[in-house]
C-alpha cells in the first residue's frame, strides 16, 4: 500500500474495511479527501535517511542525553 497523496479510493476502501469503518456511510466521502491530505502532509517522512537508527518504540529521552 502506498500512502500519502497516492492513496486511491480502492486502497482507502480496503483499509477502511480493515479498520472496521462502514464504507457505505456517506461520511466516507468527507473522510477520503481528508485522509489523502493528512497522509500527504506526512509524506516527507519517507525521504528521511534513517539508516543506523532503530525505532524509538520504547521512548526514554534520558537515553539520549546522559553525558
Amino acid at each position: 500500500m502506498d500512502s500519502g497523496s497516492a492513496i486511491d479510493r480502492q486502497a482507502f476502501d480496503f483499509l477502511a474495511r480493515a479498520a472496521g469503518l462502514n464504507v457505505d456511510d456517506p461520511h466516507m466521502e468527507e473522510l477520503f479527501p481528508y485522509v489523502q491530505n493528512a497522509l500527504a502532509a506526512n509524506e516527507g517522512l519517507r525521504n528521511i535517511d534513517t539508516s543506523g537508527f532503530e525505532p524509538e518504540a520504547s521512548f526514554d529521552s534520558a537515553h539520549f542525553y546522559q553525558g
Binding site: S3, L45, D49, T50, F53, E54, E56
Partner: peptide
C-alpha cells in the same frame, strides 16, 4: 510508516 516515524524520531 509508524515505525519509520519512530526511526526518524531517533535521528
Amino acid at each position: 510508516d509508524y515505525l519509520k516515524a519512530q526511526q526518524a524520531r531517533a535521528r
